[in-house]
Simulated assay, not measured.
Amino acid sequence: MKNKIRFTYISLTLLLLISCGKDHVPKPKAVLRLEYPEARYRPLETNCPFRFEKNTRAVIEEKRNCRLNIKYPDMKATVFLTYKPVDNNLRSLLIDAEKLTYDHVIKADEIGVGGQFENKQEHVYGRLYEVAGNAASQAQFYVTDSTSHFLTGSLYFYTKPNYDSILPAADYISKDIRRLMESFQWK
């Protein structure tokens, strides 16, 4: 009986010594990896004085006065497009577009010019602003022919802004916005 107790005691002691030999480190948090299918583009024709290529995954919602919403249901995001005719007010329209962008400076970590666009052949000139941080909008842009037409666009997500969480979707949609601007034509 004493041998059984001694064997059990030695076995438990060895088991405790062996199991306590490593330092325990907390596991790192898992990182969500979001991948989206490669974008495919198709020309969008409207009754408005412009046309452009849009991602086939996006859904177009037409409003009055050539306002369009480009919806991304899977990403819970929308690019809002607003058209305005230029009537000797180009400077005012440019100031308003820039003001709308810089209204996000309170929450933004950085507002950078993601690109200045110029297509002289199609008379399309524009600028893309990319907003980093927990701002309400992650991208703002405009295109104009500088004489008759002006279009602004804003990207919004249907969620409380959390830049790290929406960054993959914002990057994906920003590429679509670039394609929109590069393919943009006035009628």
Rank of each mutant, 00 (worst) to 15 (best):
P168F: 03
K175V: 05
E118N: 10
Y41K: 02
V79F: 08
K54C: 04
N162Q: 14
Q138I: 03
T82R: 04
T78D: 13
V79I: 07
S92F: 03
Q121I: 07
V59S: 10
L44S: 12
F52Y: 09
K107N: 15
C66W: 01
E35F: 04
Q121N: 15
L94R: 05
I18Y: 14
E45M: 10
T101F: 00
G153Y: 01
Y156W: 00
F184C: 10
K99F: 03
K4W: 13
R42G: 05
R51D: 10
K120V: 09
T8A: 14
K84T: 03
L16T: 11
G115H: 02
T8K: 11
N134C: 04
A135M: 08
F80C: 07
H24S: 12
V59D: 04
C66R: 01
L16Y: 03
L44D: 05
Q138F: 01
E182L: 12
A136G: 12
D87R: 13
L94N: 03
D171L: 08
G115D: 11
Q116A: 08
K76L: 12
K29A: 15
E35K: 06
R42W: 08
R64Y: 09
H149G: 04
D171M: 08
N47H: 12
D164F: 09
I5E: 14
A136M: 12
L94A: 03
K187V: 06
W186R: 05
V86T: 06
D176V: 06
K175Q: 15
Y142M: 00
F150T: 00
Y158M: 14
L167A: 13
L94M: 13
D176C: 03
R40C: 13
D74I: 06
L90W: 01
K107W: 05
F117E: 09
H24K: 09
D176H: 01
D171Y: 08
T13P: 09
G133F: 00
S92T: 15
Q138S: 15
Y129W: 14
A39Q: 12
K54P: 12
E118D: 14
T56A: 01
S11K: 02
L93G: 05
S92W: 01
Q138K: 04
